[in-house]
Design a protein around this nucleic acid. Sequence first.
DNA 1: CATGAATGAGCATTCATTCAT
DNA 2: TATGAATGAATGCTCATTCAT
Lengths: 197, 197, 197, 197
Amino acid sequence: MVPRVEPLSTRPTKDVLTDALLDITAQHGLEQVSVRQVAAAAGVSIGTVQHHFPTKDAMVTAAFTEVVRRIRERVAGVALGPDVHRNLTAVLRELLPLDERRATEVRIQVAFAARAATTPSLATLQAGILADVGEAIAGAIARAGRGAVPPEEARALARIALAAVDGLALHAVSSGSWDRTALTDALDRLIDMLLAR
Amino acid sequence: MVPRVEPLSTRPTKDVLTDALLDITAQHGLEQVSVRQVAAAAGVSIGTVQHHFPTKDAMVTAAFTEVVRRIRERVAGVALGPDVHRNLTAVLRELLPLDERRATEVRIQVAFAARAATTPSLATLQAGILADVGEAIAGAIARAGRGAVPPEEARALARIALAAVDGLALHAVSSGSWDRTALTDALDRLIDMLLAR
Amino acid sequence: MVPRVEPLSTRPTKDVLTDALLDITAQHGLEQVSVRQVAAAAGVSIGTVQHHFPTKDAMVTAAFTEVVRRIRERVAGVALGPDVHRNLTAVLRELLPLDERRATEVRIQVAFAARAATTPSLATLQAGILADVGEAIAGAIARAGRGAVPPEEARALARIALAAVDGLALHAVSSGSWDRTALTDALDRLIDMLLAR
Amino acid sequence: MVPRVEPLSTRPTKDVLTDALLDITAQHGLEQVSVRQVAAAAGVSIGTVQHHFPTKDAMVTAAFTEVVRRIRERVAGVALGPDVHRNLTAVLRELLPLDERRATEVRIQVAFAARAATTPSLATLQAGILADVGEAIAGAIARAGRGAVPPEEARALARIALAAVDGLALHAVSSGSWDRTALTDALDRLIDMLLAR
DNA sequence: CATGAATGAGCATTCATTCAT
DNA sequence: TATGAATGAATGCTCATTCAT
């Protein structure tokens, strides 16, 4: 009698599928995502994909939800110290395409943001993540050294900061070539402007 | 002498097609653009569309080129007076979704920017328009009242300004709801920060 | 106990599709074969055709492979007796349009041969079947009564015999009208010539 | 006043179009012939093609008529001497793909023959050319040295000869590779068989 | 003679989805 | 949990043809 061993390689299929979808999105755009492509990239049959995600929309939404979760996790994971400037830099650097990993993340976010512009259900998710990250940035700003910044003021600055960083990221990936130094310099200058009094 | 009656409906088919494509893009996103949809929206046959644009890519690229042309025209068309703050405000307000017309333009730009992230030929166009508009903003900043701002410094600030405005616009349309006042306030604050010394 | 009713209509879809393709080819030529036509003739949806044959090329190649298989089978199926003349007649008659069935086969072969002239992958299949049938004919000739015909000589004669028969068949179907008697007479005369010493 | 000189390069457009069609046929097969392709290959507009040939069928038929004319011309052009064997060889060699020119001609004839199998109007043309060339071959055979061959007998042999040669040519181009020597040998052997008594 | 605009049918192919196993 | 058969709509694109110039 043959014992069923096999604990091997048992990553949840759902996760494999989500990763496959995000890979395709980063490389070829969200409009190139199809059930077929995802199945092929994940190495499973089409039927299997649709066993886990009954419709394509469900699959895309699940993937975006996962992206949102990751961003939240990443922003929350940035260790905050006493130095406000450093804190802000740390948080915002996570949102710029400063290496291949972050470039990939940016491409994914841009793809979903563009789709959210015409897909209400995705717009809701997008609004949520913008609020969350904005709040995190506002918190970092509010703790600024010389006299506390009023919360409303901090939130307003945070919105501008987030917009500027996302704008820089968008310009970087959509113009096809960018350089780390220019992004870093722009971020420094931006933070100086934000914290100037 | 023959009176010039009926200039009516003599618009070039190519322009009608481009407008149809941009309409669909603004309303449903670039991924919903198909030769059939464009033909239907323009009120011509499928064959006619492809008589003018042999491939879909050619059609999309032509439409983006037209968008780029319009942006350039609009930015160049903003009358610049002696007041730097006012000038900057005028230029940058053109890029925010402050009314339906501009919201439509923003949606179109966002759609193309997202596609440019995975389509090198569009990325080239995007890089061009970013450089041009950035230069225009830098010019406005450089003319700032108290002592000229060094050109390189002006360009750096312009890049941040453009990124921030495009980021605000992206956040607005991708989160599904926004308000004019918040955008206007953010823009004022941004310009203050840029011109602070 | 469940009686085995209904083996009816359980023919593999792939076979039904191949037959449909060959029907169309025989009646209207290979250039009239389209996925749509095959689907319609087979009574299935377009999607089903392409579920079994991912591309049209794959479908055509599969059909030609089936044709080749049938020819081999048919030639091999001719019972060979001691009389060489009779043997040769039996084999070669299979290749002439002497009745509707064989006329259909000839039309199909001619269509594929013509396409093979500009399609290398089909040319390979064609070369294979020519070699096989040639070998079978050579075998029949070699066994000729008065002293064995040298193998190389037999092969050379076989090539001519096969060419002549295929040429007669081609002329028959391509000139639109032919008669059984003329073909039979020509075949007799040909075989006499081949076996004359 | 500028005199319209220009006798230059004034080959009839119709001929240019026919050649373009035959080029495409020889290289890619008759099924790849389209009005567009012919126009492109001839360097004229689609409209021009259809000015000369109102329908595609008319164009194809005209091209086949031209092919037939050329074959007749070529066969008639073979100088016939007193040596029957030599005469037959000369005529039949014209029909084998012994060099690139003749290979091209064969490919064209094969393409048209295949189409004629399902297109009655082409079948008529094909029947005509077969009769004509057959008659020419019969004439060469009839003049055979030792005692005249009866006309009916000569015609029967001619049909076999023509079939064999066309069959050899078909096998050569449809199997993708052939060699001059094998074809020449086969032809010699065939003629020996035909003239044997 | 030659062109280009316009058309509508047809092409192979990809698509998301349903269903039985 | 996973698969493959089947479907029908939609995709971008090529086609032959008509017509006005």
